Simulated assay, not measured.
Amino acid sequence: MLLSGKKIAILATHGFEQSELEVPLAKLKAAGAQVDVVSLAPGEIKGWDKKDWGQPVKVDKTLDQVSAADYDALVLPGGQINPDLLRVEPKALAFIKDIYNQKKVLAAVCHAPWLLIETGIIKGKKATSYKSIKTDVMNAGGKWEDSEVVNDLGLITSRNPGDLEAFVTKIIEEVREGQHAQRSAA
C-alpha cells in the first residue's frame, strides 16, 4: 500500500463540504493510511452537500486528544461554513501551525485556505483556492494561481471539489516524499 504506516488527520467541523471530506478520507484510507477525522467535540459533524445539509461523519478524535507529532499530514476540507468556524478556534489554528512548522504535509481545498490566512502560513506561498477567496489569499500575501492544484513545498491547495482527484493524488505523493526540511516556519 502506498501510505502504509502513515497517519493523516482531517480537521473539520459542522458545515464541511461533503465531498471535500469524504473523498480524501476514502482515497487516503484506500492508499493504506490511517486517517482520523479530528474536530472540536466528540460525536458527529454534519456536512454541507452543495445546497443543503449533508450526511454526518463520525469524529474519531478531538483536538484535545491529538498533537501534530501524531500525524504525517493534515487535510483541511472547505465549504464556506467549516473553515469560517474553525478560524476562530485557537486550538484548531495551533494544530494547523504545528503541522506546518513540523514540516509535514498540509493540504487545503476550496475555502479552507482561510485557515492558512488566519495562521499566517499563506504569506509568500504559492496557492490556489475557490475563486471567491482569491482576493483574501492575495491580500494575506499569498501568490495566488488559477490552477487545479498548487504545491509549495508540501503546502497543497486546490480550487474546488471538481479537482479532488488531483488534490488527493498530490497529497499521496507528498506524504510519500516525507517532511519538507527546506520549508521555513510560519
Rank of each mutant, 00 (worst) to 15 (best):
S4D: 15
G5D: 13
K7M: 01
A9N: 07
I10D: 08
L11V: 03
L11P: 03
A12W: 04
T13N: 11
T13S: 14
H14M: 01
G15E: 02
E17D: 06
Q18G: 00
E20R: 04
L21W: 12
V23P: 02
A26W: 00
A26P: 01
K27L: 14
L28D: 08
A30L: 10
A31G: 07
A33N: 12
L40Q: 15
L40H: 01
I45A: 07
G47Y: 03
G47C: 08
W48Q: 03
K50W: 07
K50A: 03
K51I: 12
D52F: 05
W53V: 14
G54K: 05
Q55H: 07
V57K: 10
K58S: 14
K58T: 15
V59W: 11
T62G: 09
T62E: 09
T62W: 11
L63Y: 12
D64I: 00
D64K: 13
S67A: 13
S67I: 00
A68S: 15
A68M: 05
A69H: 10
D70K: 08
D70P: 09
D72W: 05
A73D: 03
V75N: 10
V75Y: 10
G78M: 07
G79T: 04
G79Q: 02
Q80P: 03
Q80D: 04
P83N: 12
R87Y: 07
K91M: 09
A92E: 09
L93S: 02
A94G: 03
K97I: 06
K97F: 00
D98R: 02
D98Y: 00
D98M: 01
K104S: 00
V105L: 04
L106R: 05
A107T: 00
A107V: 02
H111E: 07
H111P: 08
P113M: 11
W114F: 13
I117G: 11
E118D: 11
T119Y: 11
G120R: 08
G120N: 03
K125P: 00
T128S: 04
S129V: 05
T135G: 05
M138K: 13
N139L: 14
A140V: 07
G142F: 07
G142T: 09
W144Y: 15
S147N: 09
E148P: 00
V150N: 04
N151H: 10
N151P: 04
D152Q: 12
L153N: 15
I156S: 06
I156G: 10
T157P: 00
R159E: 05
P161W: 13
P161K: 09
E165M: 02
A166H: 07
T169S: 14
K170C: 01
I171N: 10
I172E: 11
I172P: 01
E177Y: 14
E177Q: 14
E177T: 12
H180E: 06
A181V: 08
Q182T: 14
Q182C: 02
Q182G: 06
S184P: 04
